Simulated assay, not measured.
Amino acid sequence: MNYNGVLPTLPKELRLFIAVFVIVLSVGYFTGLLFIQETESTTPAGIEENYLGNEDDEEAEVMKFKKGEREMLTVIHTHVLSMSFIFFLLGGLVWITKAPKKLKLFLTLEPFLSIILTFGGIYLMWSGISWFRYVVVFSGILMTITYMGSAGLVLWQCIFPKRLQKVQ
């Protein structure tokens, strides 16, 4: 079965449905990133402070306490499950775009590695391996870049299917 390039050939109504889904999914994804920015967890030090607390810092503007094990497991559980579904659905759409197979492999497999590194890294950092905060930042950035690439590819081929045919 040849599925490469199916997306731009779908009826306009179906492409519109997919495009709206990806846009709404992106609103949710980037709202999550805004929340991360709001909690000042965009730097290695900020991530560490968010999960390990800052009780020892007398100059801290906002007092944060180390998260308990139950809270950590809830955060990791919900994020791993929900992000797996996000990238599974988006990856399914990527596979029906017209793009090189190696690019599709990267865009669809990398996010799952980043999910494990990001949330596994948060847990390991919380457990006392503090250098994992750098892994969390790197994998989180890579996950977001991959998301943007996948969503952009799908949206482009939904909105401009004729331009893709002209390039061929």
Rank of each mutant, 00 (worst) to 15 (best):
N2Q: 12
Y3R: 05
N4Q: 02
G5H: 04
P8S: 10
P11W: 01
K12Y: 06
K12D: 14
K12F: 11
K12M: 10
L14E: 10
L16C: 07
F17G: 09
I18C: 02
V20N: 04
F21Q: 09
F21K: 05
L25E: 07
L25W: 08
L25A: 15
S26L: 03
V27R: 00
V27H: 08
V27G: 09
G28S: 11
Y29M: 12
T31P: 03
T31L: 15
T31Y: 15
T31V: 14
T31A: 15
L33N: 12
L34W: 09
L34H: 07
Q37M: 14
Q37R: 13
T39K: 14
E40R: 11
S41Q: 14
S41A: 15
T43W: 11
A45T: 14
G46R: 10
I47L: 14
I47C: 04
N50I: 03
N50E: 15
N50P: 04
Y51Q: 00
E55N: 11
D57M: 00
E58D: 12
E59H: 05
A60V: 09
F65K: 12
K67I: 09
G68F: 09
G68M: 04
E69D: 12
M72C: 09
M72G: 06
L73F: 14
I76F: 06
T78I: 11
T78S: 12
L81A: 13
M83S: 01
F85I: 13
F87L: 04
F87Q: 02
F88W: 10
F88N: 07
L89A: 14
L90C: 01
W95C: 07
I96H: 06
T97Q: 00
T97L: 04
K98L: 04
K98D: 14
K101V: 14
K104D: 03
F106A: 10
L107G: 06
L107T: 09
L107W: 00
F112H: 08
L113P: 04
L113I: 14
L113Y: 05
S114Q: 12
S114L: 00
I116H: 01
T118G: 11
F119D: 00
F119C: 04
G120Y: 04
G120I: 10
Y123H: 13
M125E: 14
S127R: 15
W131F: 15
W131S: 13
F132W: 09
F132E: 03
R133L: 03
R133S: 15
Y134E: 12
V137T: 12
F138E: 01
G140L: 07
M143R: 02
I145H: 07
I145N: 00
T146N: 03
T146E: 01
T146L: 00
T146D: 06
S150A: 15
S150D: 02
S150F: 01
L153E: 05
C158A: 10
F160S: 15
K162P: 00
Q165I: 11
Q168M: 10
Q168K: 11
